[in-house]
Design a protein around this nucleic acid. Structure first.
Lengths: 337, 337
DNA sequence: CTGTTAGCGCATTCAG
DNA sequence: CTGAATGCGCTAACAG
């Protein structure tokens, strides 16, 4: 019982082509009264043109795919929201794929999106190393934008991410200026671009300030991982603290560190200052509330979506990457300056 | 430069029909050697059949739509994950739509999904009242499952949700059994099915326990809303506390209440006990960690997706609704029993 | 301004 | 077991 463009044409006493013209708002080519009559008919029958058929005929699906490592990671929901909102405003729909931090699933996701003939792809990749998973996109000429998680590759397309190096440097500089002498930097998994860049930022700050005593440790961006790490550090150094400040690669690890310190009877920020990264919702809800480097997640998502739409429209991007500014949000896990 | 089924057919020296048969794994109709040759060709050329064309020919898009009120609400990400995972395993893709708690946007989302010719829809609706927004789905015969947020309607399809009434009753019973005399129930927006059911659960518990003194207040499911509400209550009743326990309609409101109490110098759980609802990530990270009624969000999402796929396959559902069990998670915002 | 004619890429009859 | 023909619903030249 599905009504098609032919049914409408028949009822209106015109040809499919004419109906198609008003459907697509082709300014010219249809008389005012004919147009009005068809519009009325469409409205009263509630006719909806079939997007699939349209897609086949035009070669455009008006949908884009977004692949992220884990929607349950609090950093991503605002980003997804930004993407979705920007797309919706332009009449595009969003295929959401969760790669579950699994490289194989990420590849599968990309393959499926290509089969679906999305007009473009937003990818927040699980790993930095380039293993050819962008090749199919390049071969097919499907526009894509790398989001947050960058991939090392010559041909890698447009990228949108926060200035991770700068953000990390800001955090360390704030700690050092505050009098910190023996900082501890807890990084996330080292295979990720964001980890590498944040590490470089930390090194920048330490070098400039002549504070070489920064301890470096890698965890896995999880609360539990960081908590266990700090536990072991604290247990090993009975008595005097081996660090007087912690910069964690993300807020969840900062919270893990915080919990460990509290459990060990250490006060934050009096004994140890803590700074996180991301500014996820929990950052302001734990006690003491976390000082952190905020990322404009929603804005990044929106920016990436808009850039992608521009690529889809055939525009050549002026710059190959859009770098967003991190901001220091001072709360209570650091001492007043 | 896009290769089609015709190209493959030509290269293999067979007809499109034959290629189509091996593409769809039609067991019969193709000789073993022909099949092998074609498969090899497909593999080496990396040919991917066009999903859009397939969709037009078969009438199935192998994609479903999910509409939720707000992906940034911490309850939803795990649910989305459950949905996505279940769909992916069955080879379906997910269109994610955020209605932004806006009824009009929700309708628009549904319309777009219908245009995209999704095979089915998962809807977590913004409002309970039935205003006809399901009519298009019913008319078109598009399968759908209502998720978490239920809609009052005779024709409303299959539903998946947690037993909100029971969960609320569990919370209140726990408080009452613990000696609470003057509970305060902070509900969320009253237009939602979850709010109505949770309220009924609270009333059930109070009635059964003969504790009629339960104060009822409605906020908006936000931290700020509940915080302001408790602030005003506390300011109004200078001196003696007007309640000795709070059951909040969700965890974020519980956190808001917690913050207000602490700021007013009240101790939790010594002076006031608090129980939340949902068991989102922050629940265990605030201090004291929240006792709460946990919802199996990911499982709900997966269950809804599987039910929907069954409907899509043409099965008639045995039951019209799948009700999941809430669980009481005891933490530190209530006194030891 | 409007109608006719071709496809878009694939699945699916129906013959052979 | 295989191929040729038809159509899914719509857009896009091309004519009139």
């Amino acid at each position: 019982m599905k009504t098609t463009i032919s049914d409408i044409a028949k009822q209106a006493g015109v040809s499919k082509a004419t109906v198609s013209r008003v459907l697509n708002d082709h300014a010219e080519g249809v008389g005012a009264e004919t147009r009005a009559r068809i519009k009325a008919l469409i409205a009263e029958t509630g006719f909806q043109p079939c997007g699939v058929a349209r897609g086949l005929a035009t070669g455009k699906s008006r949908s884009v795919g977004l692949v992220i490592p884990d929607i349950a990671n609090a950093f991503f929901p605002p980003l997804v929201r930004g993407v979705e909102e920007a797309l919706r405003q332009r009449g595009y729909s969003l295929f959401l794929c969760d790669s579950d931090r699994d490289v194989q699933k990420e590849k599968d996701n990309l393959r499926v999106l290509l089969e679906k003939r999305v007009d473009g792809i937003l990818l927040s990749s699980t790993i930095t190393d380039y293993d050819g998973r962008l090749d199919p996109l390049n071969e097919r000429g499907v526009p894509y934008v790398l989001l947050d998680r960058i991939i090392d590759a010559r041909g890698a397309g447009v990228q949108v991410y926060v200035d991770n190096r700068k953000g990390a440097r800001m955090a360390m500089e704030y700690l050092i200026r505050g009098g910190c002498r023996r900082p501890l930097f807890i990084n996330g998994e080292e295979g990720l671009s964001i980890s590498r860049l944040r590490r470089e930022g930390v090194e920048d700050a330490c070098r400039e300030a002549g504070t070489p005593a920064c301890t470096y440790r890698a965890a896995d961006y999880t609360l539990a991982g960081a908590e266990a790490l700090v536990d072991s550090l604290l247990d090993a150094a009975s008595g005097e603290l081996p660090f007087d400040a912690i910069f964690a690669g993300n807020d969840m690890m900062a919270v893990g560190a915080l919990r460990s310190l509290k459990r060990h009877g250490r006060r934050v920020p009096e004994d140890v200052e803590i700074i996180g990264f991301d500014d996820v919702e929990v950052a302001r809800l734990v006690e003491p509330a976390l000082t952190t480097i905020a990322q404009p997640a929603a804005a990044m998502g929106a920016a990436a979506a808009e850039l992608l739409l521009r690529l889809i429209d055939g525009e050549k991007p002026l710059k190959r990457s859009k770098i967003m500014e991190p901001t220091l949000v001072v709360r209570q896990s650091t001492r007043p300056r």
